[in-house]
Design a protein around this nucleic acid. Sequence first.
RNA 1: GGAGAGGUGGCUGAGUGGCCGAAAGCACCGGUUUGCUAAAUCGGCGUACGAGUUACAUCGUACCGGGGGUUCGAAUCCCCCCCUCUCCGCCA
Length: 429
Amino acid sequence: MLDAAFVRNNLQAVQANCQNRNVPADIVRVVALDDGRRELLGKIQTIQQRQNEVSKLIPKEKDPGQKQAMIAEGKSLREQVALVEVQVREAEANLKAALSLIPNMTHPDAPVSSDPAGNKEVIRWGEPRQFDFPAKDHVALCDSLQLADFEAGASVTGQKFYFLKNEGALLELALVQYAMGVLVKEGYTPFITPDLARVEVLEGIGFIPRDPDPEKRQVYTIEGTDLCLVATAEITLGGMHRDHILDEATLPRKYVGMSHCFRTEAGAPGRDTRGLYRVHQFTKVEMFVFCTPEQSEAIHLELLRIEEKIFQGLGIPYHVIDTCTGDLGGPAYRKFDIEAWMPGRGKEGEYGEVTSTSNCTDYQARRLNIRCKAQGQKGTRFVHTLNGTAVAVTRALLAILENFQETDGSVTIPEVLRPFVGKDRIVTR
RNA sequence: GGAGAGGUGGCUGAGUGGCCGAAAGCACCGGUUUGCUAAAUCGGCGUACGAGUUACAUCGUACCGGGGGUUCGAAUCCCCCCCUCUCCGCCA
């Protein structure tokens, strides 16, 4: 979320930003709520001040009558404080709720458009392959090569669940190993994170697990607990340092974590119903960085560079999208997506999203209360957080199968994965 | 899951109703001194919010794991919860 004081001092800019991002937000109400909160805070402090005075004087007071009067006053002050406290709490909750509806500010270079069509291609790498035979989509390949079992997934768990099988299963492990290996070489600390997290952590990252509209909830919640299945390791990695003050000398902290990701895909029923493109559970290796405000912009480019390196290593053609304002979501200040070429997608192949990297500046850190402090300097500031996909296994797997299929129905395994799979090629069994 | 011990500032650790935002030490920052290093010595040294200042200073309020309660007054007493450690049980 944004800082209430920032909103107050930059009304027009915040207003314009909400418009660009296509988010209806009531800025005026935020300021009004903040006014109310400040006033109550002032009120309570005045009472508390008197309360402290009185209780300090009481032990010194010799006259019993005076003393009784002061005790009575103290008692009354205590009751007043209790009353105002309730109001303060309510005011703070209202303000926080209103504030969390306002999206982050936007990088000046991000394309401005309320329509996803405004997304801008900024990099193109590799040439989509021309097939001299009718290319299959990954569903057909998974079927003929027995790499995934969608019926079993549907039967055991439900629609949009799957079993990976044979080289399909091995390729998941291979992709994870490959991505982790690249990241460790880049100096990132590897993690395997919990697949469940508390509701507050989800909210801090920008998810809305308690959205009153069940049709909009993107995450699964565990009944009888305050836990959710995570939708990405961004949640757990970002939550790691909540309520911490990090020494600036230790920044940036670069992490890479593997987790399973669970998504209800609410709002996308009937979309991409076949295959691995849109599923309720997948495995993902995610990068996450905590850094100072000065560092975040350069690190964002680094995350994109690493994502490109991983896809270049796989040899899959892609392009990079600079996401437009209307498509940024709440927390991102700027976002780059890699869309990989997927020959089986659409009629003649399409680019499909495989990674996403966001600079969230201090938007998540404020909610999660993650600050940093320089040695010998007074005060703290909120850190900047960034995240990026190293590998989302199902989509990478899809792209590999479709791009590297051969006339005879086999699939060539990318060289970087061969050591982990133990073979060069997947052949019809 | 059961039993016990414990959670105080960056760390160690004192503090069992007012003189405690909190002793002392370490670490850190600044000064002095010694030819350098080291040592000695003096001072400073939490965070948030609010008031205030050009900026400092300064003042107020809150915070001793979290939440509630008792009291004029709580780090200190009471209740609930969380976490850590040790032992036992269970388990991959």
